[in-house]
Design a protein around this nucleic acid. Structure first.
Lengths: 188, 188
DNA sequence: ACGTTGATGTCAGTCACTGACATCAACAAT
DNA sequence: ATTGTTGATGTCAGTGACTGACATCAACGT
């Protein structure tokens, strides 16, 4: 058998989420998280860069989904269509994780420092999509604008999905939000 | 005469900017900033919520400019036109501050923690514009989408303006970026 | 003359985060 | 089987951001 209990990182993530829900983010110390996970504070910081990052470990996968969708769009696709395709590819992933997404969203919204980190992650997504578009020979400022619009739609659709009663699925909300964006810039 | 040297907050801002330029953000301690400003660390934290905030103390004025522009748009203006009007109103303010903007931008870009705070400020702007639009009876998701698009254009136009050789003025770049956004969502 | 106010100073404390070094099961090489 | 290496973890001492409680004292109003 192994020297250590397995999945230290997962244990830390679960312990952190539990404690943030129970006592709030600021009232929770890293030492408490580590203790609940059966580890030490020092080990926490070997797995996560800081106290906030523990809630954002998975973003990398989302980012790669966006980027690879853009990379795989057929030759000659218009930039906005590439972004839309990426959005649709991504939107399927969340369906079965709604309860978890909801809880996580509540914790993040309740704390400015966590909200700040989330905005930073969104910006990172936008940057990555922008780079992916430039790799498809889209020039500036079209690439950045398309990427920003794409992530804005994602973000707003996500908030809508979280806020409402699960009447519409996430993919459908994404589609409708995309259409609403087109209407906005068309001047309707 | 007054008991204290005047403009403590301004002295702290200047001292911080100088030190961040000279030694970098992380290598500068708050105690050093306070010392250069002839004050104590404790006083620094009475003026600014944290070590980053000292670089962002003017954002409130910018926010109000955006919001009041939206509030003052003529009755019946389309949402996107309200946002465009706000952008044009704001874009004039930066012309004479280009050197300062450039230096500040360099400092912020050089440090992830500062970049994160800037993204957070942009998100705050977007929220505020969204609220201003809702106050003009624009419904969701149009209000949020318009606001996000507006701030994206502002951000991308700003970066363009900072990056290039001052051949185009900021207002002109804003106009062209707005047009580029319309082209993107129109599917061109 | 006197009480109040408000910006600042002083001091002690908590906690996020880091660097340096120690431990020791598992595994590989011989 | 012995030995050496690796890698995840622990231990410990430190730095620095940030906070709460209390003190100071010019300016100002009464």
């Amino acid at each position: 058998m192994s020297r250590w209990e397995p999945d230290a990182r997962g244990r830390l993530q679960r312990a952190a989420m539990e404690l943030y829900v129970e006592h709030g983010f600021e009232q929770t110390t890293v030492a408490e998280i580590a203790e609940r996970a059966g580890l030490t504070e020092r080990t926490f910081f070997r797995h996560f860069a800081d106290k906030r990052e523990v809630l954002f470990f998975g973003q990398e996968a989302l980012l790669e989904l966006f980027v690879s969708s853009v990379a795989q769009a057929p030759e000659g696709t218009a930039p906005f269509e590439m972004a839309a395709a990426a959005l649709h590819a991504v939107s399927g992933v969340f369906e079965d994780r709604r309860p978890w997404s909801l809880e996580r969203h509540r914790v993040i919204s309740a704390n400015p420092a966590l909200a700040e980190r989330e905005q930073s992650k969104m910006a990172r997504l936008s940057e990555a999509v922008g780079t992916a578009l430039r790799d498809r020979n889209i020039s500036e400022p079209t690439a950045s604008l398309t990427a920003s619009s794409c992530i804005s739609v994602f973000h707003i659709a996500f908030q809508t999905w979280i806020a409402e009663d699960n009447t519409r699925g996430f993919p459908q909300i994404v589609t409708e939000t995309l259409d609403a964006l087109k209407a906005v810039t068309a001047g309707t």
